[in-house]
Simulated assay, not measured.
Amino acid sequence: MDTLDERLASMAQALPAEAENEAHRMARATAPTRRKRARWMLPALVGGAVVLTAGTSIGVATMSHWAGVEMPLENVRNEQPIPLNWVTESGHSEQCRAWIEIRNPQDGDRASLDAAILAHNWTGLGQRMYDDGTPEPDDADGEGRVGAGLEPVLRAFAEDTFPGIAWLNANAGTTTRAVAATGFTCVPDVE
């Protein structure tokens, strides 16, 4: 039985009218009140959940490719990795990938960046930067010396791909398209 009326009606002996009225009064007084929800509330909640879910999935997809490297959601970063691989003097092999992040991108910038990366010959870049770089103390894997030589290479590539693009903090706070960041990540050592 779902309602008080059903329960009262099923009793073997009917309650006096005063007792039935009192039971109804007590039920109304103790039942949780349900406020009427504004008509806009449900669409707003559903819309907010969809936006939050969509934003999260985009953020997760982007971050899964460049683990540990944060980026504002409105920026774009290459999805096609720029390979940076080298072998140290001790025979240790490093496998890394570089990225370029664009602030205030125009439509199609990510696709253009990825297409340019695919069209470019990156073979031996990491090894050349390792071999030409200056050894640093406590840098057995060579990431420091490769990183030191990476910025000019990525800058030249970005400027060739997007002529006139601003660099890093140039035009910060404006809507001018610019390279916001560059860098690289390496596969964790499993030796």
Rank of each mutant, 00 (worst) to 15 (best):
G147Y: 04
D114W: 07
P135N: 04
A140L: 11
D131E: 13
G108Q: 02
Q127P: 02
T88D: 04
M129R: 08
G149C: 00
R145H: 03
R145W: 04
N75Y: 11
H92S: 11
E94V: 12
R77K: 09
W122T: 08
N75F: 14
E79M: 13
L73Q: 09
Q80W: 02
I117F: 02
P137D: 10
G126A: 02
N121S: 15
L125F: 09
M129Y: 02
I117L: 03
E101I: 05
E89D: 15
R97F: 12
G144N: 05
Q80Y: 02
L125I: 12
I82L: 06
I102G: 00
P81T: 09
W86C: 08
N104D: 13
I102E: 00
A115P: 04
G142N: 12
N104F: 09
P135Y: 02
P137R: 10
P137I: 10
S112V: 08
R110K: 15
I100L: 11
C96E: 02
P72N: 12
D141K: 03
G142R: 06
E143L: 02
A148L: 11
S93C: 00
R145T: 10
V76C: 05
I82C: 10
R103F: 07
I82P: 00
Q127C: 02
I117C: 06
Q80S: 13
G147W: 07
T123L: 00
P105Y: 07
D114C: 11
